[in-house]
């Protein structure tokens, strides 16, 4: 029933005047919300809102066999679902290339920063804990990467470690959180429209952007990068985006710290 509205000329006009919808600046986020533990049956869960984008991350741990090249370590498995309820543009069916890229970019930042102590997931020979992170997009309005990373990171940091007893996973009260390295990875995504580089593009801006770049970092370093779409960035534009990322990621980390109780 809904039409895809076309606000290109209006948004271009605003950008020409140095502003955006809801009068935010080029390096500003929309309103961010983060709530934890909506799903107590999962080991960890978090819901992140970025403007009207709404994503839910759920974490489950399962007993599995280790990868051949890493026999003493558990693994992180990240998946995403672009639910058809989230946007008229999403359809039911197997994961699209967009969904797979989204999952891999979120996964890469968390993995590269060694957030999860995968050696602590070792149970016994040929048995390890696998950490499944599933990111569900409930409503789409742009910038899934940053919202997804925020939800996944918060769900992982607060995920409970089940016990292994008599060959089975036991999930009871009093479990402690899975072992992590104390760092927090967040990501900042930029879209390029009409020659302007904008942090946190919303759905209308994503429809117009020619290129996109995501930078994931923790307190110390860049942990993952991903450039997307047909257009290009100059090296200077990417360097500027890195500066903005290190500045803005402080706010994102403080939001995560606040909800996980640190």
């Amino acid at each position: 029933m809904q039409v895809k509205v076309n606000n290109r000329e209006y948004i271009s006009g605003l950008l020409g005047k140095g502003t955006r919808e809801t009068t935010r600046g080029f390096s500003d986020y929309r309103k961010i919300g983060l709530t934890l533990g909506a799903l107590p049956q999962a080991e960890g869960s978090a819901m992140a809102d970025m403007g009207d984008t709404k994503v839910l991350a759920g974490v489950k741990l399962g007993v599995g066999t280790p990868l051949q090249d890493k026999p003493g370590e558990g693994t992180l498995i990240t998946s995403t679902e672009l639910l058809p309820m989230a946007s008229p543009r999403y359809e039911t069916g197997p994961p699209s290339p967009d969904a797979i890229e989204f999952a891999r970019v979120v996964d890469r930042g968390i993995r590269a920063a060694n957030i999860i102590d995968t050696k602590a997931l070792f149970i016994e020979e040929d048995k390890v804990w696998n950490v499944f992170v599933d990111i569900y997009v409930l409503n789409y309005d742009g910038n899934l990467f940053d919202a997804g990373t925020l939800a996944a990171m918060s769900a992982i940091l607060t995920a409970k470690q089940p016990r292994f007893e008599d060959g089975a996973a036991i999930r009871d009260n009093g479990l402690s959180r899975i072992k992590t390295n104390g760092k927090i990875v967040t990501s900042c995504t930029f879209g390029k429209l009409d020659g302007h580089v904008l942090l946190d593009p919303d759905g209308n801006e994503e429809d117009m952007m020619s290129s996109r770049v995501t930078i994931a970092n923790d307190e110390g370093a860049i942990r993952a990068m991903q450039k997307g779409l047909r257009g290009a960035f100059s090296v200077e534009e990417v360097e500027k985006a890195i500066d903005v990322t290190f500045e803005r990621s402080k706010e994102l980390r403080s939001i995560v710290k606040k909800v996980i109780g640190e």
Binding site: L39, Q41, A42, S45, G58, V59, K60, L61, G62, S79, E81, P94, N130, F132, D134, Y136, A169, R171
Partner: peptide
């Protein structure tokens, strides 16, 4: 059903 929906194991998606 979401793969994280159950109290038990991680489900298969789809």
């Amino acid at each position: 059903m979401a793969p994280f929906s159950s109290l038990e194991e991680h489900g298969r998606s789809g």
